[in-house]
Simulated assay, not measured.
Amino acid sequence: MRYCTRADIGNAMPLRTLIQLSNDDPAAQQPNEVVIEDGVRQAAELVDGYLRGRYDLPLNPVPTVLRDAVVYLARHWLYQRRPEGALPDSVKDNRKDTIKLLESIRDGVVTLGMPGGEAAPEPGEIRVRARRQQFGPNLWERYR
């Protein structure tokens, strides 16, 4: 869990809810850590997708805004595992807001405040093409 800890996920929702969302066994007494880890992995990959090309990954230290983003996205993923239940409005709204924030970071509207404050250069090369020079030094000398 690079962007967030297991405790961060546990703080985002009650233990009983986490047990119900992460386990397929209704009699389970503990959360399924493998399922939680999978949700966090997927959320972290989505965040990386928005940051790639703008920042050098992995980020160190991880800004708290990204920790919260991964927690919100992982929580949404856990709720989506249960299609028979309705997603709470707060979970849907948090996901929408998180995606908007990630788009703003990607577009450079919001910065992460990383040390140095510099974004990573875009990959690739730039090629420039120009016409042949029509006015050489000899021609310009005539106009002096």
Rank of each mutant, 00 (worst) to 15 (best):
M1P: 08
M1V: 10
R2W: 05
R2L: 10
Y3Q: 07
C4L: 09
R6Q: 02
A7G: 05
I9W: 01
N11G: 13
N11A: 07
A12R: 11
M13C: 05
P14W: 00
P14L: 09
L15T: 02
L15E: 11
T17V: 13
Q20F: 01
P26K: 10
P26V: 14
P26I: 08
A28Y: 01
P31Q: 02
N32S: 04
E33C: 00
E33G: 05
E33M: 13
V34Q: 14
V34A: 14
V35W: 00
I36Q: 02
I36R: 01
G39P: 01
G39T: 01
A44R: 05
V47D: 10
L51P: 00
G53N: 10
R54C: 05
R54W: 07
N60A: 06
P61W: 05
P61V: 01
P61N: 06
R67D: 04
A69M: 10
A69R: 11
V70C: 13
H76D: 12
H76M: 03
Y79R: 12
R82T: 15
R82W: 11
R82Y: 06
A86H: 09
L87Y: 04
D89I: 13
K92Y: 08
K92F: 06
K92Q: 14
R95G: 06
R95P: 01
I99N: 07
K100M: 12
I105P: 05
R106A: 15
V109L: 13
V109P: 00
P115H: 11
P115R: 10
E118Q: 15
P121K: 12
I126N: 06
I126D: 04
R127I: 09
R127V: 08
A130W: 10
R131M: 08
R132D: 14
R132Q: 12
Q134D: 10
F135H: 14
G136A: 11
G136V: 07
L139A: 15
R142N: 04
